[in-house]
Amino acid sequence: MQEVQAFLNVWRGGNGFATLVEDGVVGPVTVDAINAFQEVQGGNGDGQILVADTSDVDGGQIATGDLGTSDEVQGQGDGTTIKEACEAAKADCKEKANCSQDNLKMRKCLCWRGGELGFTCQVKCGCSTPVA
């Protein structure tokens, strides 16, 4: 849950909202923050953001710490399923990061109901070694 709270804090901080305490507790403040985020993103405000393990989809390795020397970029995608939306987000992120497949490091996809196809996911990624 701390991953979700950190994700929400990036969005909240960039949009003039107070940040959440990243304590991993799913309390009413966190659920309200999720609902607000979903509504702005065109979701249904069901209070759920799902964490999808990117190893379930094609390409990249899951990164939990520092991705390396490159900056992280963010990809976003829509799909009729969480897997499809996560794959689209990963493809978007991979294109933006411009890494070789061997050097691509992905975080977990964060997904919610919404978007044009039913689900939207975002994922951060980067290169473990700079591209020359």
Results as ranks from 00 to 15, higher is better:
G43K: 07
I34G: 05
R12V: 11
R12L: 15
P28N: 11
A36Q: 15
G43A: 10
I34W: 00
F17E: 14
G24E: 00
V25T: 12
G14F: 09
N44V: 14
G16V: 06
E22I: 15
T54K: 05
G45F: 00
V29C: 00
Q41F: 02
N9G: 10
E39F: 12
Q48D: 14
V21E: 14
A36P: 08
V40H: 08
A33R: 02
T19G: 15
V10S: 15
N15T: 14
D32F: 03
R12S: 14
G24Q: 00
N15A: 04
L8C: 11
L8Y: 06
T30N: 03
E39G: 10
A18M: 06
A33N: 04
V31D: 04
D53V: 05
N15L: 05
F7N: 10
A52R: 10
D53Q: 05
V21A: 15
L50N: 11
Q41K: 13
T30Q: 06
W11I: 05
Q38I: 06
G16K: 09
W11Y: 13
N35P: 04
A52G: 06
F7L: 07
E39N: 12
V25M: 02
G47N: 08
G43Y: 03
E39T: 14
V31I: 14
V40P: 04
L20R: 08
G42F: 01
F17S: 11
G45L: 03
F17P: 01
V26E: 09
F7R: 11
D32Y: 02
V29R: 13
G14L: 14
G42I: 01
V31E: 10
N44W: 02
P28I: 03
N9V: 08
P28L: 05
E39W: 05
V26G: 05
A18D: 13
T19Q: 15
G24N: 02
N15F: 01
V31C: 01
T54E: 13
D46P: 04
T30S: 09
E22N: 13
V21N: 13
V31G: 03
T19M: 10
L50H: 11
T19D: 09
Q41P: 07
I49T: 04
F17N: 11
F17L: 14
P28R: 08
I34T: 02
G42Y: 02
G16Q: 07
F37R: 05
V51F: 03
G24P: 01
L50K: 12
L50R: 13
L20P: 12
D53P: 04
G24Y: 00
W11P: 07
A52N: 10
S55P: 00
L8A: 11
G42Q: 07
P28C: 00
G47Y: 00
R12A: 15
A6D: 13
D46C: 03
T30W: 04
L8T: 11
P28H: 02
G16A: 07
V10C: 09
I49Y: 01
V31Y: 00
F37I: 05
W11Q: 09
T54D: 10
V10I: 15
G13L: 12
A6W: 09
I49L: 15
T19S: 12
G13F: 03
N35L: 07
S55L: 09
Q38A: 06
T54L: 08
S55W: 01
G27C: 02
S55D: 10
L8W: 08
V21F: 04
V26Q: 09
L8V: 10
N44M: 09
V40C: 02
D23H: 03
I49D: 04
Q48C: 06
V51M: 11
G42S: 06
G43C: 07
